[in-house]
């Protein structure tokens, strides 16, 4: 059993996590994959943070409204913009990953990537403007 790794795959790099941060000679698919995972980690951390922040509601009106006052400052809104990028990128690249994984448009992965991430970037730009102007 010693030489049988549960995730053994002959084409998988020996240090897969290191490979994410080395963009040299990588295809757009690999960079898309790495970015998908980085945004996934960020969004997972945010999910727990979000639940913790929502707990402020149980402490009453003053507690929540003072958080909202902080959340409306420009520096905090910048974090919202970063979050929005993570959400829309992960969302639209995730659609591509799911479709390709199910055998849809396998041979048009790159086109699918450019179209979906293009839509994501347009939505991101609109959302970023709305965050600062709404």
């Amino acid at each position: 059993m010693a030489d049988v790794q549960p995730t053994t795959d002959p084409v998988r790099p020996k240090r897969p996590l290191n490979a994410w941060f080395n963009p040299r000679g990588r295809s757009i698919n690999t960079i898309a994959f790495a970015l998908n995972r980085l945004t996934a980690i960020g969004l997972t951390v945010y999910l727990f943070l979000h639940l913790a922040i929502l707990s402020l509601l149980l402490r009453g009106e003053e507690s929540w409204n003072s958080f909202i006052a902080i959340a409306r400052t420009p520096w905090f809104l910048m974090l919202d913009v970063v979050l929005l990028f993570g959400v829309v990128y992960h969302m639209f690249n995730g659609i591509r990953v799911a479709l390709v994984g199910m055998g849809v448009a396998n041979y048009r992965q790159k086109t699918l990537f450019y179209v979906l991430v293009g839509i994501a970037l347009v939505l991101f730009a609109v959302g970023a403007v709305l965050i600062f102007t709404k």
């Binding site: 509601l57 009453g60 009106e61 929540w64 409204n65 909202i68 959340a71 409306r72 809104l77 919202d80 929005l84 959400v87 969302m91 995730g94 659609i95 959302g127 709305l130 965050i131 709404k134």
Partner: peptide
């Protein structure tokens, strides 16, 4: 994609001021 889309629109883009008060 659907639920998070609705969640973000309802909480961040519909409300005047960007976020709902208490």
């Amino acid at each position: 994609v659907i639920i998070l889309g609705l969640h973000m629109i309802a909480h961040h883009f519909v409300v005047e001021g960007g976020l709902r008060d208490y």
